[in-house]
Measured scan of single mutants.
Amino acid sequence: MGFKLLSKLLVYLTASIMAIASPLAFSVDSSGEYPTVSEIPVGEVRLYQIADGVWSHIATQSFDGAVYPSNGLIVRDGDELLLIDTAWGAKNTAALLAEIEKQIGLPVTRAVSTHFHDDRVGGVDVLRAAGVATYASPSTRRLAEVEGNEIPTHSLEGLSSSGDAVRFGPVELFYPGAAHSTDNLIVYVPSASVLYGGCAIYELSRTSAGNVADADLAEWPTSIERIQQHYPEAQFVIPGHGLPGGLDLLKHTTNVVKAHTNRSVVE
């Protein structure tokens, strides 16, 4: 069995187990497998329904001669939608809004960016022009300005110390501490036991640490421990890039980060 097929099978099995364990909360999309990078042309966006009122959005972007996937989250909030992270750029984010209108038909009224990198804030200006209120932590807003990236308009308070959590509509926002970046936030959907790890969490097929220019490698494993301790009931975990899975993604990420750190020390 090929690795790609095995990865998709694991996603399907995880979703099936969740649907059985929580039949009222989960209505997993039966329309197909989780979209992969090879299936999404740059400039297009796919939506994948995880649970009743919960979707991931998947886009792709060219970077350094390669094409990478990027995940975000959409959560229903009454007759409105909360968006977590842009679709990595203005063109993708405009396509995301169009796809949401086509498939869901509810307005996106608020959006949260989970850290300051372009795959999370690139497209904020498109959201703002569409009347979406954009939010991020003060740290993310400051770092985005320093980096020359787009800056969300509103500040999220109460997320300055490791372990801080605040309720934001249908989700809980959690600051686990520094990891992929010093400002990275985690998003949890309690009604569906869905954990969105953003770039602080890796997919299972990833074996290298990737972009760690703004990471705190020493603190990252401790931050992941905080996530595990705060959300032990999480059933569906979405990484910032690639295929979702279960809580095993947290341990896998820790292993990859520690291996990278150990290699760096040896070198």
Rank of each mutant, 00 (worst) to 15 (best):
G2C: 05
F3V: 06
F3P: 04
L5H: 08
L6P: 07
S7R: 08
K8F: 05
K8L: 10
L9C: 10
L9Y: 08
L10T: 10
L13D: 04
L13N: 14
T14V: 11
T14Q: 07
T14F: 10
S16Q: 05
S16A: 07
S16W: 07
M18W: 08
I20G: 08
A21N: 08
A21T: 13
S22E: 10
S22G: 10
P23I: 14
P23K: 12
L24W: 13
L24Y: 14
A25W: 13
F26L: 10
S27W: 09
S27H: 08
V28C: 10
D29H: 06
D29R: 08
S31M: 11
G32S: 08
G32L: 15
G32D: 09
Y34F: 06
P35D: 11
P35N: 14
T36H: 15
S38Q: 15
E39R: 10
I40D: 10
P41F: 08
G43L: 05
E44S: 13
E44A: 13
R46M: 15
R46L: 08
R46N: 06
L47S: 02
Y48K: 08
I50Q: 08
D52T: 09
V54W: 02
W55M: 03
W55N: 02
W55D: 00
W55E: 01
S56Q: 05
S56F: 15
S56G: 10
H57R: 02
H57S: 14
I58V: 09
A59T: 07
A59I: 13
A59W: 02
Q61I: 14
Q61M: 08
S62K: 15
S62Q: 13
F63N: 15
F63A: 11
F63W: 07
D64M: 15
Y68I: 15
Y68H: 06
P69H: 15
S70K: 02
S70C: 04
G72W: 01
G72K: 02
G72C: 02
G72D: 03
L73T: 02
L73K: 02
L73F: 03
L73Q: 02
I74T: 09
I74R: 02
I74N: 03
V75F: 02
D77A: 12
D77Y: 13
D77L: 04
G78Q: 08
G78C: 06
D79P: 14
L82S: 06
L82E: 03
L83H: 00
I84C: 02
I84S: 01
I84V: 14
I84Q: 00
D85K: 00
D85P: 00
T86I: 03
A87P: 11
A87F: 00
A87D: 00
A87M: 00
A87K: 00
A90P: 10
N92A: 11
N92R: 12
T93A: 01
A94L: 12
A95N: 13
L97T: 04
A98D: 05
A98Q: 13
A98C: 05
E99I: 10
E101L: 15
K102W: 15
K102E: 09
K102I: 15
Q103M: 07
Q103C: 15
I104D: 00
I104L: 15
L106T: 13
L106K: 11
T109N: 15
R110P: 04
A111S: 14
V112F: 07
T114P: 01
H115S: 00
H115G: 00
F116P: 02
D118M: 05
R120S: 10
G122F: 04
G123L: 03
G123D: 03
V124G: 07
V124Q: 05
D125Q: 13
V126H: 07
V126L: 12
L127Q: 02
L127C: 00
R128D: 06
A129T: 06
G131K: 12
V132R: 01
A133P: 14
T134Y: 02
T134W: 03
T134H: 04
Y135E: 01
A136H: 04
A136D: 02
S137G: 12
P138L: 11
R141F: 07
L143A: 08
L143K: 15
A144K: 05
E145A: 14
G148C: 05
N149R: 12
E150Q: 10
I151K: 06
P152V: 05
T153Y: 06
H154R: 09
S155K: 06
L156E: 02
L156H: 03
E157Y: 09
G158S: 14
L159H: 04
L159V: 14
L159I: 11
S161G: 14
S161W: 14
G163I: 08
G163M: 06
G163R: 10
D164Y: 07
A165D: 10
V166M: 09
R167F: 07
F168A: 02
F168G: 02
P170E: 10
E172V: 11
L173H: 04
L173Y: 03
F174R: 03
Y175D: 02
Y175N: 06
P176I: 02
P176E: 00
G177C: 02
A179F: 02
H180V: 00
S181N: 01
S181V: 05
S181Y: 03
T182G: 11
T182Y: 15
D183M: 00
D183Q: 00
D183H: 01
L185H: 00
L185Q: 01
L185N: 03
L185S: 03
V187S: 04
Y188L: 02
V189A: 08
P190N: 05
P190T: 05
S191Q: 09
A192I: 08
A192F: 05
S193K: 11
L195Q: 00
L195V: 10
Y196D: 01
Y196T: 02
G197Q: 01
G198R: 02
C199R: 01
A200P: 03
I201H: 03
I201Q: 01
I201V: 08
I201A: 05
Y202H: 15
Y202I: 06
E203D: 04
E203R: 01
L204D: 14
L204A: 07
S205N: 05
S205K: 09
R206Y: 08
R206A: 07
T207C: 05
T207K: 11
T207D: 15
S208W: 07
S208F: 06
A209G: 11
G210R: 07
G210M: 06
N211M: 14
A213R: 10
A215W: 04
D216H: 06
D216P: 04
L217H: 06
W220G: 00
T222W: 10
T222Y: 07
S223V: 08
E225P: 02
R226Q: 05
I227H: 02
Q228A: 15
Q229K: 14
Q229G: 09
Q229H: 13
Y231Q: 00
Y231E: 01
Y231K: 00
P232R: 10
P232G: 09
P232N: 05
E233I: 13
A234V: 10
A234T: 06
Q235T: 06
F236T: 10
F236G: 07
V237A: 05
P239E: 01
P239S: 03
G240R: 03
H241I: 00
H241K: 00
G242R: 03
G242N: 03
G242H: 04
L243Y: 08
G245W: 02
G246A: 10
G246S: 06
L247S: 08
L247M: 07
D248I: 14
L249Y: 04
L249F: 03
L250V: 10
K251Y: 15
H252Y: 04
H252T: 05
T254S: 13
T254E: 12
V256D: 03
V256S: 05
V257M: 12
K258T: 11
H260Q: 10
H260T: 06
T261H: 15
T261W: 14
T261N: 09
N262R: 09
N262Y: 10
N262M: 11
R263E: 09
S264V: 13
V265D: 08
V266A: 13
